[in-house]
Design a protein around this nucleic acid. Sequence first.
DNA 1: TTGTAATCTAATGGG
DNA 2: CCCATTAGATTACT
Lengths: 164, 164
Amino acid sequence: MAPVTAESRLAFSIDRILGLERPGNSLKLHRPWAGKEHGQSCCFNVLLFCCIKAENDAEDENREQQQLNSRPTSNWYIGRRPRTAFTNSQVNILETVFQVNCYPGIQLREQLAGRLDLDEDRIQIWFQNRRAKLRRLLLLSWDILPITIELHKKIETKFYFVLF
Amino acid sequence: MAPVTAESRLAFSIDRILGLERPGNSLKLHRPWAGKEHGQSCCFNVLLFCCIKAENDAEDENREQQQLNSRPTSNWYIGRRPRTAFTNSQVNILETVFQVNCYPGIQLREQLAGRLDLDEDRIQIWFQNRRAKLRRLLLLSWDILPITIELHKKIETKFYFVLF
DNA sequence: TTGTAATCTAATGGG
DNA sequence: CCCATTAGATTACT
């Protein structure tokens, strides 16, 4: 077996990365885009974390209240999108479409968005959640599997394909 | 404006789905998996209730019991890998490595896999998704930059620029 | 409390 | 590799 030389060692061994091994020189970062100006097209080099420093909060009640009200979730600084309240007629149409096509493509989603006066991504999310609900329902029905199996023995089927 | 021909019309226009438009033929349902044999691999969309081939079950009580007790975990629908739940410590190490090298080569991935007791391809996927997340964050932070600056002025927070 | 819109991320397939 | 999209799981709001 070949001896482990400095040359054969990985530039990025886990030990080095985790700081468990301390080479003489500091670890050179692997940034394919490093050295490019941030205006360059490929991507923005700066990830901006806007973190609140809470110094001096006590002096500003309003400000403090704001900060207390905003939940410190990972994306609190952006905020959660206000919950969309679909109307009955909107849901009816969505459900009708879902019965036929539960994986609407971009065109159909745009079409729906236009007709229902909603953003396309709300449509997208609605279908995602609707499919999840359906799966949940199907899984629930799986709980009654023993009964189903009994039934299936009786009627001599092999599989149940639940097509939706 | 180009005329709407039968060819240019969507297979699933809302009008067709809602029945407001009646084509000569009835609407064909959009079932990605329809017509395919259930054994086919690609089709992760199939909710296959593989309800146990019950031939001869009655002759083997033990086996039947096993099958009844076993919940449909990995096999209840075909082809999709069960979601891997990384532990906190695994994620911590992955994140640490990512800070240094977000494009780990095969050697480093294998190294990580060994240390974290994961398959190398899970590492690979993790880094792909992590890079996608980073790109998303970068775009996002760019979009909210003006707002963020306003916010920053108001509440006198500091910016953290994390340079990659 | 329930239902569901929204979020996060592992997994998939195609380019 | 990237990209779009999915499923799965969870959070949070009405």
